[in-house]
Amino acid sequence: MTKIKSLNDLRAIKASVEAKMNLRERSDAPEKLVQVKVAMATCGIASGAKAIMDFMVNELDKRQIPAVVSQTGCMGYCFAEPTIEVTVPGKEPIVFGYVNEKKADQIIEKYIKNGELVEGIIPVNYESIESK
């Protein structure tokens, strides 16, 4: 039987992650990282928000983009779920709706990497989620 992973293995992973973490990530300055918030209320979850969050966590890492992906509450765009809010350092947050894996891929390649806009932006009188 293969060995079951344990907290001891976590110690090893922690050491390797720390060795790899660059100064930018280590500098305790989350505003320097790309931030992705995935709306995780009932409508979002029912429309696939959890899979989109998995995709973002995995793909941003694979494509070596320093980022923080997190869950957030309802943004009020039930009609457009799954929705995600993307904040690129130095720019205003932007909300994308009807996100599937294909669109999430474009958001990374076009918007996050090159600043190009992608179809499906929800600009409606938008306030950041924190102020809801």
Binding site: L10, R11, K14, S16, V17, M21, E25, V57, L60, V69
Partner: peptide, 13 residues
């Protein structure tokens, strides 16, 4: 175990 190492790191997740 993690201390200051962020739990939201993709490898740790």
């Amino acid at each position: 175990v993690l201390g200051n190492t962020p739990v939201n790191n993709a490898e740790i997740i």
